[in-house]
Each structure stands twice: as structure tokens, then as C-alpha cells.
């Protein structure tokens, strides 16, 4: 029987994992009383329902509901001193939980503290834009939309940022293969040659490690040279090296080039 390969996550996986392997966890600690993070948690908890708060590797991580993101970030900015949002993006948990995780990495410049606000949304649901609070989200949310297809409500200019406007698919989804999908392999062929020439040109090679020994145009055949563009296959491929090229080959084991052979 053919081995089952999951289709909802096509990213690289470890070829072997011990049966008894249990991954350890990064230590999570409770928020210390009367610390800066405690004040943040209290300020947020007073206004919205918190789903969790813990300190992980020196940074606070608070989990909220996606609809509260504007409220929470307003509290963080106005009453907790988080004047800067350094980063925001999403993590694809569709295969595991059927959800996206969106994180906002916040920075308090006065106390040099960092807080990560995390929320989850279902695919197809939109998240409210935080551009009114932090202008940096203009590009970051566009990138998130581009890479994950998460729609953002009330964004001033929501369109693809990194991929071309007419691209199909969202590259950072776990269902999107590393080498690109069917659409990706025809995209440039269609752009440059036109759809009508698909049969002649063929799909783009999107595997940089591909080696085709019968391709006489893109691969050199040292010692087995054939004319450029010659049709090659298993039958007409020469078994032995061509004589004339032997003189050009360097025997690295001999230490020095045998120049006599050339004359």
C-alpha cells in the first residue's frame, strides 16, 4: 500500500522520531506580583476577558480573543506605555486546530519590556486592522494578508505586498509546498511566452536541485560532451568518454597537469 502523506501540512518533516520522544517545553512562569507585567495583565484584564497570561523567556505573552485586539492594543499603548509595535504576523495552525494564530509583538521603550499579544481566528474570518493605532501595521498586515490570506478589516490599502497582484495561493500556508504549486510553475511561462505556448515551453523548473543528465542545454557533460541542444536519451548516450576531451581533463591525483599530452 502507498504510504499516507498528510495533505494539510506539506512542509518538511523529520524522517525519524523516536517512539518515546517527548519534546521538552520552554519554561513558562507565572506573572510576578507587582512587576511591570503584572500591571499590564491587570490593566488588560479589567477591560477584556483574558484567556491566558504567562512570562516566557522574559517576555509576557497574553492570549486574547481576536475581536478584542483593538481594545487590548489601545490599553497597552495608552496606559501601559507600549508605544511601539515591533512586529505582527500569523502562524498557520489550520492542520492542527483549524485556526490561525496572530501575534502582535509590542515594545515598551521606557521600561525596555516586551509583550506578545496572541489571538486566534478561524480561516475566512477577518481581523480588525490596527493601522489607526500603529502605522507600521500598514505593511505588516498587507504582508500577512499576502502570505496567509487573512483578510484585514478597515485596512487603508489591503492588497498583496510581496507576491504579484495576480498570484493565486498564499505561500506561507502549511498546505503550500516549498517548490510552489501548479499555478506557480506556469505563472512566468504565461507571462513571458503567453498561455498558448505552454505546450512548447513546458512548466518552469522550480526545483533548484534538479539535475537532468539528458538535458544538453543546461547541464555540462564533462568528458561526455555532445553538441548543444542535442537530443539525448538512455539509448543514444555514449557509454565511454569521448577521446578528444581526455587530453583536457586534469588528473588531480597526479599532482601536476600533464602538459605533454596536449601537443
Amino acid at each position: 500500500m502507498r504510504k499516507y502523506t498528510p495533505k494539510d501540512n506539506v512542509q518538511a518533516k523529520s524522517y525519524y522520531t523516536d517512539r518515546f520522544w517527548v519534546a521538552p517545553r520552554v519554561p513558562k512562569t507565572e506573572v510576578e506580583k507587582n512587576s511591570h507585567f503584572d500591571k499590564v495583565v491587570k490593566a488588560v484584564d479589567a477591560k477584556v476577558k483574558l484567556q491566558g497570561a504567562a512570562v516566557e523567556l522574559g517576555q509576557l505573552r497574553i492570549v486574547i480573543e481576536a475581536k478584542d485586539n483593538i481594545k487590548v492594543l489601545t490599553i497597552l499603548r495608552d496606559s501601559c506605555g507600549y508605544k511601539m509595535c515591533s512586529e505582527l504576523s500569523a502562524v498557520d495552525y489550520l492542520a492542527k486546530d483549524g485556526e490561525f494564530e496572530i501575534f502582535y509583538q509590542m515594545l515598551n521603550l521606557d521600561e525596555a519590556k516586551r509583550t506578545r499579544v496572541v489571538c486566534r481566528i478561524k480561516p475566512g474570518e477577518a481581523i480588525e486592522s490596527i493601522v489607526p493605532l500603529y502605522k507600521m501595521a500598514n505593511f505588516a498586515e498587507r504582508e500577512m494578508f499576502d502570505m496567509f490570506g487573512i483578510p484585514v478589516n478597515n485596512h487603508p490599502h489591503l492588497k498583496r505586498l510581496i507576491m504579484p497582484d495576480d498570484w493565486e495561493g498564499h505561500p506561507l500556508l502549511k498546505t503550500y509546498p516549498l517548490q510552489g504549486d501548479e499555478f506557480a510553475s506556469w505563472y512566468e511561462v504565461d507571462k513571458i511566452f503567453g498561455k498558448a505556448h505552454r505546450d512548447i515551453v513546458g512548466p518552469e523548473n522550480r526545483n533548484p536541485a534538479l539535475i537532468d543528465r539528458y538535458d544538453s542545454q543546461r547541464f555540462s557533460r564533462v568528458g561526455y560532451e555532445v553538441p548543444f541542444g542535442a537530443e539525448l536519451n538512455a539509448e543514444n548516450e555514449k557509454a565511454n568518454p569521448i577521446e578528444y576531451s581526455e587530453t583536457l581533463l586534469v588528473n588531480y591525483n597526479a599532482g601536476t597537469k600533464d602538459l605533454k599530452k596536449r601537443t
Binding site: 512542509q11 518538511a12 518533516k13 523529520s14 522520531t17 519534546a23 521538552p24 517545553r25 520552554v26 513558562k28 516566557e56 523567556l57 517576555q59 505573552r61 515591533s86 512586529e87 504576523s89 502562524v91 501575534f103 509583538q105 516586551r114 506578545r116
Partner: peptide, 27 residues
């Protein structure tokens, strides 16, 4: 280990940081 990290550094251009979410796998 399983967990997430964001480590900021001061690169010549500004704040350069990598956010890594690990699920305990080699990737």
C-alpha cells in the same frame, strides 16, 4: 523545546529580531 521566542538585536539598520515558534521538531 516547544515554545516561542522573539530575540531582538541591534543590527546596523535597526531592530533585527527573529520570532521562532518551535513545536519540538527539527524544523
Amino acid at each position: 523545546p516547544v515554545g516561542e521566542v522573539y530575540a531582538p538585536t541591534e543590527s546596523p539598520k535597526g531592530e533585527l529580531g527573529f520570532y521562532i515558534k518551535s513545536e519540538g521538531t527539527p524544523y
